[in-house]
Design a protein around this nucleic acid. Structure first.
Length: 465
RNA sequence: UCCUCCUUAGCUCAGUUGGUUAGAGCAUCUGACUGUUAAUCAGAGGGUCGCAAGUUCAAGUCUUGCAGGGGGAGCCA
């Protein structure tokens, strides 16, 4: 049995090659039947559907069949036939079964019946074997591939930015420290602080919160670059939209202004959603049926509309004129709250919204300042259900203005000298944005908790598996 | 981190104003059934009621603390 190439279930389910000999290997979802005939639903993860294996009990060793239980892993050699039953077109008449791995029914946690997502989070090592997580993980893969394909086709270069960083300049949140010092007896300075000059890198280092600053360095040579890698935030965020370890996509484009940036963001998101509909329809259909009846309609809706683009200032006017009562008051100069963003996206416009030109005080130092002296060329893409999916901006390319802003915010110039050098030598107008990969997967799958769209979520108080 | 709700069988949950031996469905096990579709039917086993303390003649039920989880908020992607 080992020497024959196995057939993938995704291919067999589409096959009309009845009578051919096939070999399938996978995990048993259910076995049912009577003392004469058994039906095994076998899944190998190649597709959400299982294939039905028909077993004439008389032809098999009773002890072998006893080991074929929900969760066990088996290989089946048999004949592909047209199904006599109602639920499927093809099935396999089994000739030989080899059990690779048993799964004790008394202790195997996954049942034939549905489980709560909360319970499955506690057994994240086994949840990929469920229909739901199979679907989510296949979609996640397709989106990762689609991202690379999109940027490659557009002439972007995939730039690997560092995971370990010595700069704390992004200001995107609390960071995890990286150290090789003895945690029981670290070298100390006279002032009582740890002496990181004796650490592995000779300075204090952290896990990155963003690859953007380094991506800008790449864009100042290759014109079009993007990063796609893990990102870490040590914030104590306990929400269905935050992870301590997540994946972020950050394109950075020389010679793009804020409008080019918005065009790219919109086209990029639509491409990915179309890619999911084209390549993951079975999985989307399952998720649409089981979790979110409006999922596929919502995805198609995004493709059909053009994103509403307006300035922060205009948004504030709309919110003030809305007559809604807010938990947090709307006022020019304060950041918009989730309730405000939701109103704009879900009630007022009923489609994705791109907000631009925010007050500079509530945005990062590197964003390009407008002539009004008050706002910066930021752009946030807001999506229904999940809120901010993309945050980006045109970058400040003027050396003097950027240095002045850095001083205003008390960012040590010595930490970002290399970043400032790009504005000193051959500076160029440029733009970029960050897409939270898991937030994209949330939107595309219709899942409602970000912990269910990454295989092994890292959140406060949880680094299991 | 804040607000709020939850924690009872392997899973999902019910459990009345505090009162005898804590229930159901599914799962598991045993048996029946010649093609099933979350198979069906019959029977059986399965519980430190999250942990700790308190109130009470009596606590799954009331109080306090702790832990874990859900939802909302903040931080953000």
């Amino acid at each position: 049995m080992e020497h024959t190439r196995r057939n993938k279930i995704v291919d067999l389910l589409k096959s009309k090659d009845f009578g051919s000999e096939v070999l399938v290997k996978g995990w048993v979802r259910t076995k049912r039947g009577n003392k004469n005939i058994n039906f095994i639903a076998l899944n190998d993860g190649s597709v959400i559907h299982s294939i039905q294996v028909v077993v004439e009990v008389a032809n098999f060793d009773e002890n072998t069949l006893k080991l074929v239980t929900t969760g066990s892993c088996i290989a089946v050699k048999g004949t592909l036939v047209e199904s006599m039953g109602q639920g499927q077109h093809v099935e396999i008449q089994a000739k030989a079964i080899e059990v690779y791995g048993t799964a004790d029914n008394e202790t195997y946690p996954l049942q034939k019946k549905g489980h709560s997502l909360e319970f499955l989070r506690e057994i994240a090592h086994l949840r990929p074997r469920t229909n739901t997580f199979g679907a989510v993980l296949r979609i996640r893969h397709a989106m990762a591939y689609g991202i690379h394909k999109y940027f490659n086709d557009q002439g972007f270069n995939y730039l690997h930015t560092p995971i370990i960083t010595g700069s704390d300049a992004e200001g995107a949140g609390a960071m995890f420290r990286v150290t090789a010092l003895d945690d029981k007896n670290p070298p100390m300075l006279p002032d009582g602080h740890v002496d990181y000059s004796q650490d592995f890198f000779g300075k204090e280092t952290k896990l990155t919160v963003s690859g953007q600053l380094e991506a800008e360095l790449g864009a100042m040579a290759l014109s079009l670059v993007y990063t796609f890698g893990p990102t870490f935030r040590a914030e104590n965020s306990n929400t269905p939209r935050h992870l301590a370890e997540f994946w972020m996509v950050e394109p950075e484009m020389a010679f793009y202004d804020i409008h080019d940036n918005m065009d790219l963001a919109e086209d990029f998101l639509k491409y990915l959603i179309q890619y999911a509909l084209d390549h993951c329809y079975d999985d989307l259909e399952f998720l649409n049926k089981m979790y979110d009846n409006e999922l596929i309609d919502r995805l198609k809706g995004v493709l059909e509309c053009s994103f509403e683009r307006l300035s922060y200032t205009e948004a504030v006017k709309i919110l003030k004129a809305s007559g809604q009562s807010w938990e947090f008051p709307v006022d020019w100069g304060t950041d918009l709250q989730a309730e405000h963003e939701r109103y704009l996206v879900e009630k007022h416009f009923g489609k994705p919204v791109i907000l631009t030109d925010y007050p500079k005080e509530i945005k990062a130092f590197y964003m390009k300042q407008n002539e009004d002296g008050k706002t910066v060329r930021a752009m946030d893409v807001l999506f229904p259900k999940i809120g901010e999916i993309i945050g980006g901006s045109q970058r400040e390319e003027n050396f003097d203005i950027l240095v002045k802003r850095i001083h205003e915010l008390n960012i040590p110039e010595k930490d970002v000298w290399w970043y400032l050098d790009t504005r000193k030598f051959g500076t160029a107008p440029h733009s970029g944005f960050g897409l939270g990969f898991e937030r994209l997967i949330l939107f595309v799958t219709g899942m409602s908790n970000i912990r269910d769209v990454i295989p092994f979520p890292r959140t406060p108080k949880n680094a299991e598996f």
